[in-house]
Structure formats: structure tokens, C-alpha cells
């Protein structure tokens, strides 16, 4: 597993890619807030948000395939919370934009904008840079450490699980039937124990390099944002404000 979900697209020679991670965080997160606060009947606003993201996609040359993969990953979760709405919710007669279908639309479009925005962020920013960006924005250190360890060991763990699965299959164990749940349970248990032990070893490695829980893992001294960063952030935020409050339906 050489190419990862996060790092395969980050290339430094592109305008969007080369923006400071803080700029991207401070533009794309507000987009989510603005979009979430938009009433569902503001169709033009949602169209403009999408258009904004499509322009970014084109500028950053993010492959459509990557985006589709991300949407498909999130789809089950979106459907889980929204698919039943049209059949359950009754329309409130005093409000023409209430009722199941509007609620459904409301949820789906906002999830779409949110996932799209985060996909643009992660597809154009290396994970290490992203975490550093959050650190410079004074995000809680503990949370960032958790994220960074998860990212680092996710693939190690996946490979470990694959090796175990291979070892299991090599000893003629096939299928996933209910009566084989015991073996699967044992595998999960082993994986848990191994991860636990690895955690201890990693902590040891941290301690032996002078970690005592008080230091910051990331560089704290911030470089100033460049002119391009300000220009990008300001123009983007103006677009959001116009799309949200400037559009008359």
C-alpha cells in the first residue's frame, strides 16, 4: 500500500495545492457552516456552493474518480440517516418547505457540500501539512496526536490484518459463515492485543526521545500567510456570503 487516500494527489506546483493549509482550512470549514445554515429552499445558493467547489476541483486538477470514491464511501451513512425521511415526516401546513422530501433534500445536499469541501481539502493538502495547519491554528494537541497516530498506523494495521487473513486462508479456512465467528473473533482479539503492545512500544520510543507529555509535537512558530493566501480566502468568503445572503428567491 504505497499510495494512500490522502497523499496521492498532493502536488506542490499547483496554485490550490500550494496554498497554506491554514488558508484552506479557514475557507473550506466556513463553507460547511454557511451551507449548513442555508434554508433548504435556497436552491440557487446550493448551486453556487457546488459551482465554487467545482471551480476549485478544476483549478486543483482533482480527478473525478477520487471524488466519486469519497462520495461512495460516505453514501451509506447519508442514506442511513435520511432515506426514511420522505416516508415518515408529514408536511407542516403553515410551511410549504417542510415535509419529508424537503428534509431529505436538506440533509443530502448539505452532506454533499460538506464531503465535497473536505475532499477538496484533503486531496490538495498532504496529511502532515494538514495537521500542522491545524496545530498552527491552535487546535487541541491531543486531538491532533490522535489523528496523526491513526493516520500513521491505519495502514500498518491493515497490513497486519491482511497478513493474518492470509495466514488463516493458507490453513484452509474459507468462507464467512456464522459458525466461523469464533475464529474471526479471535483474530480481532489478536489484532487488538498487538495494537495495544505496539502502542506501548511507540510510547517508549517517544519517551526515549525526550517526550514527557508537555511539549508540542508541531512547530509553533507561524510563518505569516502570503498575499495569495489572503486573496484566496477573502474572495472565497465573499462568494459564500453573496451566495448565502445575496441571493433573492
Amino acid at each position: 500500500m504505497k499510495d494512500t487516500l490522502f497523499d496521492q494527489q498532493a502536488s506542490p506546483d499547483n496554485f490550490i495545492h500550494s496554498l497554506d493549509p491554514r488558508t484552506k482550512i479557514l475557507t473550506l470549514f466556513p463553507l460547511i457552516f454557511v451551507s449548513t445554515s442555508t434554508p433548504p429552499q435556497f436552491l440557487l445558493s446550493f448551486g453556487l456552493y457546488s459551482l465554487y467547489l467545482i471551480v476549485l476541483t478544476a483549478l486543483a486538477r482533482i480527478p473525478i474518480k477520487l471524488l466519486i470514491k469519497r462520495f461512495l464511501m460516505a453514501l451509506p451513512f447519508i442514506l442511513m440517516v435520511s432515506a426514511y425521511l420522505p416516508f415518515v415526516e408529514q408536511q407542516d401546513l403553515s410551511n410549504p418547505y417542510s415535509g419529508g422530501w424537503w428534509l431529505f433534500w436538506n440533509m443530502v445536499i448539505k452532506a454533499f457540500i460538506g464531503i465535497y469541501a473536505m475532499s477538496v481539502l484533503t486531496a490538495t493538502t498532504r496529511f502532515a501539512k494538514l495537521i500542522q495547519g491545524f496545530a498552527r491554528l491552535r487546535a487541541p494537541q491531543l486531538l491532533l496526536m490522535l489523528l496523526s497516530f491513526t493516520y500513521r498506523y491505519m495502514f500498518v494495521l491493515v497490513e497486519e490484518a491482511q497478513r493474518m487473513k492470509r495466514a488463516r486462508d493458507a490453513r484452509a479456512y474459507g468462507g464467512r459463515w456464522l459458525w466461523q465467528a469464533k475464529v474471526i473473533g479471535q483474530m480481532i482479539g489478536t489484532l487488538f492485543l498487538r495494537s495495544y503492545e505496539r502502542g506501548e512500544r511507540v510510547y517508549l520510543a517517544m519517551c526515549s526521545r525526550g517526550y514527557d507529555g508537555t511539549q508540542s509535537l508541531w512547530q509553533n512558530s507561524s510563518e505569516a500567510l502570503g498575499r495569495r493566501d489572503y486573496a484566496f480566502a477573502l474572495s472565497s468568503i465573499s462568494v459564500f456570503i453573496l451566495a448565502r445572503w445575496g441571493v433573492v428567491i
Partner: peptide, 24 residues
């Protein structure tokens, strides 16, 4: 350590090497 996966715990090699000096 024997297993470098235990010693390299940061998202990038740079961060890993910087970890010790930053702690100092």
C-alpha cells in the same frame, strides 16, 4: 528499536526526525 514502525510514528519522516530536537 528493532521495528522501525514503532519508532517512526509521525505523519512524515521530517516530523519524526524533528520530534526529538523539539522535545529538547
Amino acid at each position: 528499536f528493532q521495528n522501525p514502525d514503532d519508532q517512526l510514528f509521525c505523519p512524515s519522516v521530517h516530523e519524526d526526525v524533528a520530534f526529538g530536537p523539539r522535545n529538547l
